[in-house]
Design a binder for these strands. Structure first.
Length: 272
DNA sequence: CTTTAGGCCTGACGGC
DNA sequence: TGCCGTCAGGCCTAAA
C-alpha cells in the first residue's frame, strides 16, 4: 500500500505525539509480521524518551537512547494515534503507549510490514545500508538516474522502483512519474538519454511532492494517522485507469504487466 | 554483477 | 448465498 507520500503523511501525523514523549508501555498482540516482532527487547524501551522520529525510504524510525524502533507498513499497514482506552481490533499488531495518554497503533492485515529494534549505527543496518538517495533531496537528480541506468537491461519502470537506485517510488507513482515525463515504462533503462533522465527525475520529485501535499493516495485502506483518507487519487493520470481516456489526449490508457507489477501508460503521450 | 520468480498474507471483487 | 480464482500500494531471498 503505502509508498513514500503515504509514509511521509503518516510520519507528519504521528510526529507531534511522538516527539519528546516517554514510552510508557509496549503491547504486542500479534508478533507475526514479515519478521517476528522482538517483544522482549522492545519492552526494554519502556520509560525511554523518544528523542526524534524520521522517515528513511518507506521506513519510520523512532529513536531513543536505548535503540531505534523501525517500522514498515508493507502493503496494507497503517499507523494511528489513539487515546489509550481505544479497544484493539482485528490485525492490530502492537501499541506503543505514549505518556500513558496516547497509543501509536500498528494495524497490518497482510503482515508484510515489520517492527524491528535497531542498535546504532542505525544506517549500517542491513535493511538501510544499501538504499539509494531520498527522491526529494538534492542527492537525487537526473545525473544519478542516468549513471545508475547504464548497462541496465530492465524496463525503466523497474529501474525507478529499485530502492538501491532511488527510494520510495512504488507502483502508483512510478506509473504517474513516467506519464508526466512522457516516457514509456517498458523502455530499456540503459538506452534512455541523459536528458530523458533529467526530465524523469524532475517528474518523480513533482509527483511525490504533490502527493504529499494531498495527504497521499487512498485506494482501499490507506488512512492518515487521524484516520482520514488521502486525496491524491483524484490527481492520478494513469494508475488504475486502463481502458479509460487519457486526461491529456483522450487516447485509451493501456495496462501492461512489467516485472510482475501492473503498469499503466498512455500510448500517445508516452512515446519516448 | 544483473535479472527473474517465488514467497509472504488477508481481503475485496467478479463470475458462476 | 457460497465457492473459487484473481488481484492488490512492498520487498527480501534464492536461483538462474
Amino acid at each position: 500500500m503505502p509508498e513514500l507520500p503515504e509514509v511521509e503523511t503518516t510520519l507528519r501525523g504521528i510526529q507531534p505525539y511522538l516527539q519528546d514523549a516517554t514510552i510508557t508501555d509496549i503491547r504486542v498482540r500479534n508478533p507475526s509480521l514479515r519478521w517476528p516482532v522482538p517483544v522482549r527487547p522492545l519492552q526494554k524501551l519502556c520509560d525511554e524518551k523518544i528523542s526524534a522520529c524520521e522517515r528513511r525510504a518507506k521506513y519510520i524510525l523512532i529513536h531513543t537512547d536505548r535503540g531505534t524502533i523501525m517500522l514498515h507498513l508493507g502493503m496494507s499497514g497503517s499507523l494511528r494515534v489513539l487515546s489509550v482506552d481505544q479497544p484493539a481490533g482485528k490485525h492490530d499488531h502492537l501499541d506503543i503507549e505514549l505518556n500513558q495518554q496516547h497509543i501509536l497503533r500498528l494495524n497490518d492485515p497482510r503482515r508484510f510490514g515489520c517492527c524491528l529494534l535497531l542498535k546504532p549505527p542505525v544506517a549500517e543496518h542491513k535493511l538501510l545500508a544499501n538504499l539509494g538517495p531520498e527522491p526529494l533531496t538534492d542527492a537525487f537528480n537526473g545525473d544519478i538516474l542516468f549513471r545508475r541506468s547504464r548497462g541496465r537491461r530492465v524496463a525503466v519502470k523497474n529501474l525507478i522502483m529499485d530502492g538501491q537506485v532511488v527510494v520510495g517510488v512504488g507502483n502508483i507513482y512510478a506509473s504517474e512519474a513516467l506519464f508526466l515525463a512522457g516516457v514509456r515504462p517498458t523502455l530499456t533503462a540503459g538506452r534512455l538519454s541523459r536528458a530523458r533522465y533529467q526530465r524523469l527525475a524532475e517528474c518523480i520529485k513533482l509527483v511525490l511532492a504533490n502527493a504529499i501535499k494531498a495527504g497521499g493516495t487512498t485506494l482501499n485502506d490507506f488512512t492518515q494517522a487521524d484516520g482520514s483518507p488521502g486525496y491524491f487519487k483524484q490527481e492520478l493520470f494513469v494508475y488504475g485507469r486502463a481502458g479509460e481516456g487519457c486526461l491529456r489526449c483522450s487516447t485509451t490508457i493501456k495496462a501492461k504487466t512489467i516485472g510482475q507489477r501492473s503498469s499503466f501508460y498512455c500510448p500517445a503521450c508516452q512515446s519516448f
